[in-house]
Amino acid sequence: MDYYDMEVKLGHIAILKDSLWSGDFGLIRSPSLSPIYIERFRGERTRVPFGYHKFWEFVCVMNGEGKFMVEGRADVPLVDSRIFLIPPNTSHAEYSEKKTEIIWVGCKGTVFNKFSIDKVLYTTYPDLAGKFLDLWKLSCRGYGNIGMELDGRCLDILGCFQRLLKEGEVHPDQNIVEKAVSYINEHFADDIDIAELSKKLNCSEGHFYRLFKKRIGMTPVSYISKVRIQNAAQWLMRSDLKLSQISNLVGYHDQFYFSRIFKKITGTSPKAYRDRRQSDKLINPQN
């Protein structure tokens, strides 16, 4: 019988081969913790049914936005560097109308035997997200004796995740950042005053800045700009609105300032961005 005794059909997911653990040392998968699959997705996810697995799964959102849905529970926003740990038999799905990059890691092992977790846990931490990208890059080799290293990196990820959760219990700062991110994603077109937002979250402005940058990897002001420009890019691709109109829709009342921020973030001007996208559509009309 296969070590993982797969009880569900994984469809398109590629199972990591046992041969990755073979070698001169006669190694086998670690019974403590070992990955079943490591998959990466980039694109929109608008027609994804709910599904579940008989094993534990990490979902790491490298970048993008949307919502993580669990049947019978409140949705959780998808934001950059957000990592979810999903218990077995938990029906869930990720939904995003915009291009999103996600890495899934299914794993199993005796380390989970003492876990008394029956709900999805999540944290937002850029350094931890970087570990998932490194893990995926290693798995892409698909050959050689890399199994032991895959096991070790998965254990490192789980250990880091557990540490962050414990820190969150002692210092419930993560809730502050989560609420701030949700507020910005919903009100990005408004004039957001960081000092006022800090007051709403019962936090000093300086402390809020430090927490936000630690968790998200950028300042609140930079994050607001990023969300605005992401939405502006969608308007440029999918509408014929003037630049001044789009500028106002995403919270910039000065078109020239909007253009400067857009170029700073995307590397091109709004007009050039629109022209290139329209040209791409002529070449590839299905995009």
Rank of each mutant, 00 (worst) to 15 (best):
M1D: 11
M6H: 13
E7S: 13
L10E: 04
S32W: 03
L33W: 05
I38T: 04
E39A: 13
E39D: 13
R42V: 15
G43T: 06
E44T: 09
V48L: 14
F50A: 14
H53E: 15
K54E: 12
F55Q: 10
F55W: 11
G64W: 02
F68Q: 01
F68A: 02
E71V: 13
A74E: 15
F84T: 06
F84R: 01
S96N: 06
I102Q: 10
K108Y: 09
F112S: 03
T124G: 08
L133F: 07
L135M: 09
W136R: 03
K137V: 05
L155M: 07
L164I: 15
L165G: 08
K166E: 10
G168V: 06
V170I: 15
K179A: 15
I184F: 00
D193P: 02
A195T: 12
S204K: 15
S204C: 14
H207Q: 03
G217W: 02
V221D: 11
V221G: 01
K226N: 02
Q230T: 01
A232N: 02
Q234I: 04
R238I: 06
L241R: 13
S244F: 08
T266M: 15
S269K: 00
A272D: 14
A272S: 15
R274P: 11
P285C: 04
Q286V: 10
